Amino acid sequence: MIKASSIVLALFLAIPTFIAPARAQLPPDEMTTKVLPEPEPKWVFVLDAGFPTTTVAKLDIIDGSTRKMLGQLSGGYLSNFEISPDHREMYMIDTYYSRAWRGTRTDVVTIFDAKTLNFQAEVEIPPKRILIVPKRDTTAVTPDGRFLLVANMTPATSVSVVDLKARKFVGEIDTPGCVQVLAPSNRQFSSMCADGSIMIVTLDDNGAAKEKKQGKPYFDPNKDPVFDQPAVIGTKAYFDSYHGAIHVLDLSGAEAVAEPEWSVLGETDSGWRPGGWQTIAANEKKGLIFVLMHQGGEWTHKQSGNEVWVFDAAKKTRVSRIALKTPAYSIYASQDEDPIVYALALKEAQMEEYTASDGKFLGVVNQLGTPFLAYGP
């Protein structure tokens, strides 16, 4: 006796294969690479330190006009970022350990093509660079794009010099008692010293130190310390202090020259202080200085600010106040005729935008991880 199930199976096997449904042929995948245009003045580069792990930093490239993400770079442990003056290359200054957070340490300058964001090369440097929560002035590129300077602390202080054209490390310069780097001139850099003075180092064409000069202290770190990430207009650096003083230093010569200090505080501004991480910004075209402010007492210098005060740098007078929707930890201003103020809110992982002219809120960019620093092209 033949079972019904056997008959069904036989009929199924007898079905001609030609009546099976045809399968569409998918085109083969093709890899494509987007090319970024020349950076616009309202582009902003936001450095995410990757807290709480910090082993992989990232840099978000954002069009401030549209608040759209344009691209992203990856870095290492507590990386820093620089862009070449001609906007052809971007640099991540990285530290890596062979066992993620321990083991053999390697420090490198990683070079990327600025249009494709493709890796180009890397230059190994001494494993000495200062490892702290990212600060802008632990690295600098000279205005001619020739040298990249990296501040070291082991705890001895020095500066590593990389020849970006030759793609090689060319030497280390001791800066005893002085740390960080500002490079407003092609063959000079300056470092802030523990006693409140500035050391200026003059370089030769090979990147070696030709001259060092340390001037007199321009502020008293025991009475009113300054924040160590100044705003720069040309060759002048604007340092804001914990109590609201503005110290202006001309770094164009072989020795720093201090201008008369002035205060951001008026007669009715009692209780207000600068605070945050990147607390001061500038727009050179309009001659404006922006200071992140909060209300607080002594040693509240790391408190986020709920206002940005805008000053005419030449007249040393406040011209407006921008009330922030979300307290900010760092600020930056675009370098054009109609500047935008970018305010980074660390805890909220976002960046808010405001017009510098009247403080109008423009919008927000979310999901930025731990945004500590903002840079411009």
Rank of each mutant, 00 (worst) to 15 (best):
Q214D: 00
P225G: 04
G376M: 10
T175I: 00
A333G: 02
C178Q: 00
V232N: 14
P176K: 06
F169E: 00
V232L: 13
A374I: 01
G266R: 02
P225D: 04
L251M: 06
V319H: 02
F119L: 04
K115G: 10
G145L: 03
T53M: 04
K34V: 07
P260Y: 14
K213W: 02
G215I: 05
M92T: 08
T55K: 02
L47A: 12
Q229H: 03
T235G: 00
R67E: 05
D338W: 08
T370G: 11
A356P: 03
P339M: 13
V341T: 11
A258Y: 06
E259H: 08
K42W: 01
F219Q: 06
E255Y: 04
I132H: 03
K302H: 14
Y218H: 12
K42R: 15
V123C: 00
L368C: 14
F119C: 00
E122D: 06
E38K: 07
I331L: 10
T66I: 01
Q72F: 02
N186Y: 05
I19S: 11
A343V: 07
D174L: 11
A49Q: 13
T317L: 12
V319S: 06
G287V: 00
P134E: 01
I61C: 01
K115S: 15
L324D: 08
E337H: 12
A237H: 10
G76I: 06
N118H: 12
C193M: 05
A258S: 15
M90I: 01
G363Q: 01
S84G: 03
Q350S: 15
Y238V: 04
S74E: 15
A151E: 05
S65Q: 14
R146W: 12
I15D: 09
Q120E: 14
S197G: 08
L251T: 13
G207R: 03
Y342S: 09
T279M: 06
K68M: 11
T32E: 09
A314R: 05
R99G: 01
A10H: 08
P27E: 08
A256V: 15
L344S: 13
Y354N: 06
K42I: 01
G266L: 08
F372Y: 10
T157W: 04
V248I: 12
M293E: 01
R99Q: 13
G359W: 07
L164F: 06
G266M: 07
A114E: 13
F45K: 00
V123E: 07
S320G: 14
V248L: 08
M1F: 11
T235M: 06
M1I: 10
A24Y: 13
D48V: 00
D240A: 11
L78C: 02
K210D: 13
C178R: 03
A208I: 04
L203F: 10
T355G: 07
L47Q: 05
W262S: 10
T355W: 09
G266K: 05
P21T: 10
E124P: 07
D48P: 09
G244M: 05
V319Y: 08
V35I: 14
L249W: 12
D63H: 03
T370V: 15
A4T: 09
K58F: 04
T138V: 02
R273Q: 11
A20P: 06
V161C: 07
E259N: 12
K360W: 11
I111V: 11
L149R: 02
A156W: 09
